[in-house]
């Protein structure tokens, strides 16, 4: 209590917090919508394999499924930790 409180920034309105949280979760859920159920499990298994060789976090693996006319592209991207080269390894594989 006192003069310090006075100088503190006003807290963010809760509606703004709600909006930002929703933006993120809705975008995330839309990107996985209609994707096969095995994707999360495959992501975890891939992580296990990669962990044998390099120490990476689960957040470092990004799986993206894109539909083009007639075929689907499964894109897998792994961000490797600093000090390793190359920084980013990307591989494309066709599925479906």
């Amino acid at each position: 209590m006192g003069i310090l409180d006075f100088l503190k920034r006003k807290p963010e309105p809760t509606a703004t917090v709600a909006r930002e949280r929703l933006r993120i979760i809705v975008a995330q859920e839309r990107s996985t919508r209609g994707a096969p159920d095995y994707l999360p499990m495959m992501r975890n298994e891939l992580l296990e394999v990669i962990k044998k060789y390099v120490h990476v976090d689960i957040e470092a693996i990004n799986i993206n499924l894109e539909r083009d006319s007639g075929h689907e592209i499964l894109e897998l991207s792994v961000t490797l930790p600093d000090g390793k080269s190359p920084d980013k390894a990307g591989s494309d594989a066709k599925a479906g």
Binding site: P13, T14, A15, T16, A18, R19, L22, R23, V26
Partner: peptide
């Protein structure tokens, strides 16, 4: 007063 999502917020999300 910023306690509830606005029409615009919901439309944008």
């Amino acid at each position: 007063i910023g306690e509830m999502l606005s029409v615009k917020d919901v439309e944008e999300i």
